[in-house]
Design a protein around this nucleic acid. Structure first.
Lengths: 229, 229, 229, 229
DNA sequence: AATGAATGAGAATTCATTCAT
DNA sequence: GATGAATGAATTCTCATTCAT
C-alpha cells in the first residue's frame, strides 16, 4: 500500500504497486552503478522491460523515481532491523543485535546505502525531509534500545543522540568505505571489532556481565570476542 | 605547484595556478550548494569573474573541475591536521589532538566534505583513485598516531584500520549529519562525547593515566570530561 | 443524421450521433477556452464523461474532432439565421433581420466563432474546404437578400460579394473584437450603429422609405434610429 | 532598438537585433504557412540558417518567437500607415488614405495578418495584452482621422469606436477572406467598393464636396468612383 | 461497445564544449 | 591569453493513438 503520496495516472492500486516495484528495482540498480544524473529514463524503462512513456504514468518526474528508490532503502531498514530483534527482551542484547542487523542490512544494500548518501541532496527540500524523517524513525530503534540499557544501568549515562549516530555511522561506514574494507576485513570481523570498541567504552560493570552472557548464549549473532571483557 | 596532472593550454605555471585557484574557489561554493550536475560551467565562470571559454584553457572537461575541487578538500585535510599536532610528542595527545583537529577542519569545510561524499563517485575511476589515495594518506596521520599509542601500550591492541575509520567517520559524521546535530549539539560537545566514548573503550590503564594528563594540561583542546576515568 | 463523412467504427447510427454530440460539446468548450493544440483528447473524454479510447471509436484522429466542432458552428449559423427571417417577404426587412440575427447568433457562439477563425487553418485542405463551402452557403442567405433588394431597387447596385462580407464581418467582428467592445457597447448598440452606417451608404430613396417602414413596424428587431433618414 | 523586453543571453544589442530579425523572418514565414504549433524550432533555425541552440540565446521560449513575430506585424502597421498620410492635412483625405494604406499593408502582410488572428490567443495573457495595446495604438490613426472629420463636419456624428473597427475590419477582411476574394476581385476594386459604401453612409453634404475633391485630385489613391455622389 | 493501460515517436530546451575574433 | 557567441548532441517529458481485456 502506498505511503509515498506520489501521484499516478493509473487508478488500480495493485497495478501501481507492481509497476512501481519494477521501476524502482531497475532504477536502484542503475542509480547505484551510475548515479542519478548519469542514469537516463530510457535506461530505467529498458531494464524494467517497459516503455519510457509508462514510467511517467507512475511518476510525475524523474526525481520522483529517486524518491521512490530512497524510500525503499530506508523502508527496508525500517522493516529488517526490527525483525532481527523481535522477541528479544534483554535490552543489551536488543542493542547488540540491532547494530549487528543494521550492519548486515547495510551489507545487503551496500550500493543503495551509498546511493542514499550521494543522492539525498539531489531531492527537492520537501522530498529530502521525507527521507530524513524515516532515517530518524529507523535510528530510533537503536536509540530506544540504548535508552533501555541506560535506564537499566547496563550502559552508563551517555548522550543518546551522539552514540546512536556513532553506531549508525559504523553500520553505514561498512558501505561508505567498502572500497577500503573489501580487501582487508570480513563483515563479521568488522562488526566484532567495532561493537567491541564501542561497548567497552560505555558498558557498566553490570552491563559487562550481562553483555558477555547475552553474547555467549547467542551464536547466530556473531559478536563474540567480548569474552575477555 | 601543480600535482594534478591535469593538462592546461596555458604555459605559464604561475598563471595556471592562479586561475585554477579562482576556478576552484567558485566551483567549490557552487558544487557544495547545488551539487556537481546542477552547477553550470557558466555559473562557475561568472562567480570566478572569468569567461566560460577561459575555464577550458585550464581544464579539459567539467569533471576536471570536480577533481580539482575534491583534491583541494583532501589537500586541506592533509595540511591542516598535521599542523595541529606539530611539535607534540606524546602519542596519545597526538591522537586526541588529531581527531579534534579533524573534526574542526570538517566543521570549517562542512559542505565540501559532504560534497566529497556525494561526488567522488561522479569521477572517472582513475580520478576517483587519486582521491582515495589522498584520503588514505590523510587518514594515516590518525593511524600512525594510533600505532604509536599501541606500541607504547597506551591503547590496547586493536584493529588499526577499523579504529582509524571509526574515528574518521566521527569527524565526517559531523558534516554528514549536520542537519541532525545542528539543533542539538555544539561542535565541542560533539567532540567531547565521541572521543570520550571511544577512548574509554580502548585505553589501557597506562593510557588512562596518560590520557587524563594529556587532556588536563591542554585546555585549548576541549576534550575534558574524562576526569572520572 | 450524419453528413460529415467521418468514418466511425461503430455501426448504430443513432449511437454515433449521440456520442459525437457528447464529444463535440465537450470539445467545443475546451477548444474555445484553450485552443485546439492545448486541448488533450483525455480532457475532452473526461469532460464528455467517456474514456479516451471511446473517442477513437467515433473519430479517426484528433483533427476530426475539430472538423466536427467547426461543422457544428457553421451548421448552427445555417439553421438559426434562416429561422429569423422565416415568413418575412419584404426583401429589405429580410436583409436587416438576417444581419441582426447573424450578430445575435455570433453573440451566442462568441468563442466558437473566434475558434473558427483561429482553427480553420489547422485543418487539412480538404477539411478546410468543407468548412468554407458551408460558410459560403450561410452567407448566401445574406447575399440572396441583398440581390433581392437590388433587383427591387431598394438598394443601389453594389458589388454583392463585397457587401455581403462587409456585413458578415460586422457580425463576426462582434466576436473577434469582443475584448474591445465588451466595456464599450451593448450588442444592440453595436448592431444599430453598424447597420445604420451601412444602410445609409447603400439604400436608394425607395429603400429609405421602405427601410424606415420595415424598421418602424418591427420593434423586436432593435434597429431603430434610422427614423431621420 | 529593442522595445520587446524579451531577455537575451547575448549582450551586444546590435547582434541581438540582427539575429532576432533573422529568426523573426524565418518564423513569420513558417508560422504563416503552418501555424505556430506545427512549426518546430528546428525548422525555424534551419530556415534562418542558424542552429537550434542559437534561437534560445535570443529568446527564452518558443512563445517568445511568436510574440516577436506578432509585434513585428503590428509594428509594420504602426510605421507604414502613418507614412502614407504624412504631410496630408485635409482630414477627409487623411482618413481615406489611411484606410487605403491599411488595406495595402494588409495585402503585403496577408499571411502575417491571418497569423495574428489565429495566434494571438496562443500567447500568455500578458503577451497578448502587449499586442492588443499596439493594435489599439495603430487603430487610433484611423480614429484620430475620423474625429478630425467629424469635428470639421465632414462626417456626421457617429460612434467612432464602431466606425473605426468597421474600417479596420474591412482592411483585415482582405486578408481573412482572401481565399474568397482571390478569384473575384483585385485589391483596388476591393478598396474602392468598401470605401465607397462606407463613405456614402457617413459623409455630410460638406464632406461629399470635400471628398470628391480630395479624391479627384489624387490619382495615386485609387478611390475614384465616388463621382456621382 | 467500452475501457484505460501502454506505447513510442517527437519536441522543446539545455549546456558542455569549440572557435573565430 | 581571453572572450563570449555558436553549436548540436542529448534528455526529459508529452500525448495521440493503439489494443488487450
Amino acid at each position: 500500500m502506498d505511503k509515498t503520496n506520489i501521484a499516478s495516472h493509473v487508478e488500480n492500486p495493485d497495478l501501481v504497486d507492481r509497476r512501481r516495484k519494477q521501476i524502482v528495482a531497475a532504477a536502484t540498480k542503475l542509480f547505484s552503478d551510475q548515479g542519478f544524473y548519469r542514469t537516463k529514463i530510457k535506461e530505467i524503462a529498458k531494464l524494467a522491460g517497459v516503455s519510457p512513456g509508462l514510467v511517467y504514468l507512475y511518476v510525475r518526474e524523474k526525481e520522483d523515481v529517486l524518491l521512490l528508490v530512497l524510500l525503499q532503502v530506508v523502508e527496508d531498514y525500517a522493516i529488517e532491523i526490527p525483525k532481527a530483534i523481535e522477541g528479544i527482551t534483554d535490552p543489551l542484547e536488543r542493542l547488540i543485535r540491532a547494530v549487528d542487523a543494521y550492519c548486515r542490512v547495510v551489507d545487503r544494500h551496500r550500493s543503495a546505502t551509498v546511493l542514499a548518501y550521494r543522492s539525498t541532496k539531489s531531492l527537492s527540500p520537501e522530498r529530502r525531509l521525507l527521507i530524513q524523517e524515516r532515517e530518524i524513525a529507523t535510528n530510533s530503534i537503536i536509540s530506544d534500545a540504548l535508552i533501555a540499557c541506560i535506564s537499566q544501568k547496563l550502559i552508563r549515562p551517555v548522550n543518546v543522540d551522539v552514540l546512536t549516530y556513532q553506531l549508525v555511522l559504523i553500520a553505514h561506514g561498512w558501505a561508505l568505505k567498502s572500497w577500503f574494507y573489501k580487501s582487508r576485513l570480513t563483515l563479521d570481523e568488522y562488526i566484532n571489532h567495532n561493537v567491541d570498541n564501542m561497548l567497552r567504552g560505555i558498558l557498566t560493570k553490570a552491563g559487562q556481565r550481562s553483555g558477555s552472557a547475552a553474547i555467549r548464549c547467542e551464536s547466530a549473532c556473531k559478536v563474540t570476542h567480548l569474552g575477555g571483557m
